[in-house]
Design a binder for these strands. Structure first.
Length: 490
RNA sequence: CGGGGUGUAGCGUAGCCCGGUAUCGCGCCACAUUUGGGAUGUGGAGGUCGUAGGUUCGAAUCCUGCCACCCCGACCA
């Protein structure tokens, strides 16, 4: 992270956090562990927001907004929840500053809050406190609400994009009349995330459930999608929680059922964050910078003119105008980089750094021949193609790139997915190629913790599609009836 | 929060041991030549050496406190 922007490609580190900065997405801010997301990086987040938001609406959800500050007393109503988050909360204790007489600005001790406010690390408590007033009858259910917001978790250690003290996310909070309905919602939203990750981000994910030890604080069941990064470490890319009646009981949220009985409401919550940006970067980037899947890229096609004279430029402009229009009709976003302050080679490198999927270079020579140079970011290849039918070509190429990026990541995961049957083998794979390790586990938290202590690997999930299989725990030799996935994780 | 490290121009750095106000590269500005893969030449601008104290005739350099960042650990989306 200490390395900054340099001008030459060979200086780019394989180390992804460096890459993030150099790709002009984000930098650390002066505030501990937070990040400044630069415009180009934010444009990528906005694309994610737009696509996810549409899916949320399609699945019946609405957006709402709840307060940033949570009274401490709300927070402590759900025992497991408060225990899970207590060690990482930013707390507001005063509401005023003053001049101490010597010109220094200090906290005004007279302005101490009666009750401290917690800067939300997640909004279950304040939302369920609100839902109490919204729900009386089964007719008020379900409530399907999502919030786009920032949250703060005062982590001991931060990592750009993956674990910043403040991060942007969406959190869905739903209320249901029955257990079944809530579980269905939990699974539905996990599917939304998984499809988004695979179809849009081109990041293959494994759908699974967390072990009791890794479960969200306050949940009965935590579902997750787990992605694999290019360095062989796993990354939790999204979670969907079945909260049971825990929060309804803590906040006294009851409804009268069809049968006239007073019952507690069933709940879910689910979220993905700017961590997805990290997933995207670490899954696809190479030494030349970002590789953005076309469906996500804010700019899908960049056009670079190559010219010596104004006449040549004018001729190219006419062609580019027409091409741009044709692409826009096909809903393809285009950037015409007609800066005369940079040379073509510089522009090529710069747009590669930013991960733009397709580049069209067109110069006087092309204008004579009726051709352009068409380059794709994912394979770093280029070819000379006819101007005739170019927009259609590009449209197909974008699809091919999307597919190729996904396949590449899928192949990588397939080659980093290992079944092992002994602890020795387990450690060998873990220290070697890394990746997901599928093995038997005796189902106890104690074993899970011991393995983590010894190897740093954690159980990423119990895959949803895992089949029953008799075996013995690689650590204790006790019987097990299915495999789970271990990995070192971020 | 524990262990280790770093902080010098927009970025990356040398200098620190052994005190005498700062090196180099990239970038930036001007002009010229250039322009199909990160141009070249010449000239130029840019620095409270993280910060607050201390020692000293004199501190980037030695000492102390503080702050920030990075790495490892514990914690975690």
């Amino acid at each position: 992270m200490s390395k900054g922007i340099t001008s030459r490609a060979e200086d780019y580190s394989q180390w992804y956090n460096d890459l993030v900065i150099k790709a002009d997405l984000a930098e650390n801010s002066a505030v501990r562990g937070c990040m400044v997301i630069k415009p180009y990086g934010y444009a990528i987040w906005e694309r994610m927001q737009a696509i996810l938001d549409k899916r949320f609406k399609e699945t019946g959800h609405s957006n709402a907004y709840f307060p940033l500050f949570i009274p401490k007393s709300f927070f402590s109503k759900e025992a497991a929840h408060v225990e899970g988050f207590a060690t990482e909360c930013a707390v507001v204790t005063h509401y005023r500053l003053k001049n101490d007489g010597t010109g220094k600005i200090v906290v005004d001790e007279d302005a101490k809050l009666e009750e401290e406010l917690i800067v939300r690390p997640t909004s279950e408590t304040i939302i369920w406190n609100t839902y109490r007033g919204w729900i009386e009858s089964y007719r008020d259910l379900p409530i399907l609400v999502n919030q786009w917001a920032n949250v703060v978790r005062w982590e001991m250690r931060t990592r750009l994009f993956l674990r910043t003290a403040e991060f942007l996310w969406q959190e869905g909070h739903t209320a249901h009349a029955t257990r079944e309905e809530a579980i269905e919602e939990t699974e539905r939203m996990l599917d939304v995330y998984a499809e988004f990750a695979e179809n849009i981000l081109a990041v293959p994910v494994i759908r699974g459930r967390k072990t009791e030890n890794e479960r969200f604080a306050g949940a009965l069941d935590t579902y997750c999608i787990e992605a694999l990064m290019q360095d062989g470490k796993a990354l939790q890319a999204g979670t969907s929680h079945f909260l049971g009646q825990n929060f309804a009981k803590a906040f006294d949220v009851k409804f009268t059922s069809k049968e006239g009985k007073l019952e507690h409401v069933w709940a879910t919550s689910w979220g993905v964050s700017t961590r997805l940006m990290g997933a995207l970067i670490m899954a696809h980037s190479d030494d030349q910078g970002l590789v953005l899947p076309p469906k996500l890229a804010p700019i899908q096609v960049v056009i670079v003119p190559i010219f010596k004279t104004e006449e040549e430029k004018a001729q190219i402009d006419v062609f580019v105008d027409q091409l741009t229009n044709e692409l826009k009709i096909k809903n393809i976003s285009v950037k015409y980089d007609e800066r005369d302050t940079q040379r073509p080679g510089f522009k090529f490198a710069e747009w590669e750094l930013k991960g733009v999927p397709v580049r069209v270079a067109v110069g006087a020579r092309d204008m004579q021949n009726g051709t352009v140079e068409l380059a794709r970011r994912d394979t770093q290849t280029k070819e000379t193609v006819a101007q005739e039918g170019l927009a259609g070509n590009i449209e197909q190429l974008l699809h091919a790139i999307q597919e190729n990026i996904y396949q590449k990541a899928l192949n990588f995961r397939a080659s980093h997915f290992t079944e092992v049957n002994s602890y020795d083998e387990f450690k060998e794979v873990l220290e070697g190629k890394g990746g997901f390790i599928s093995c038997h586990w005796d189902g106890t938290t104690e074993t899970e913790k011991r393995v983590k202590e010894e190897t740093k690997a954690t159980i990423r999930c119990i895959p949803l599609d895992v089949k029953d299989e008799e075996g013995v725990c690689i650590f204790t030799g006790k019987p097990s009836n299915r495999r789970v996935l271990f990995a070192k994780a971020y």
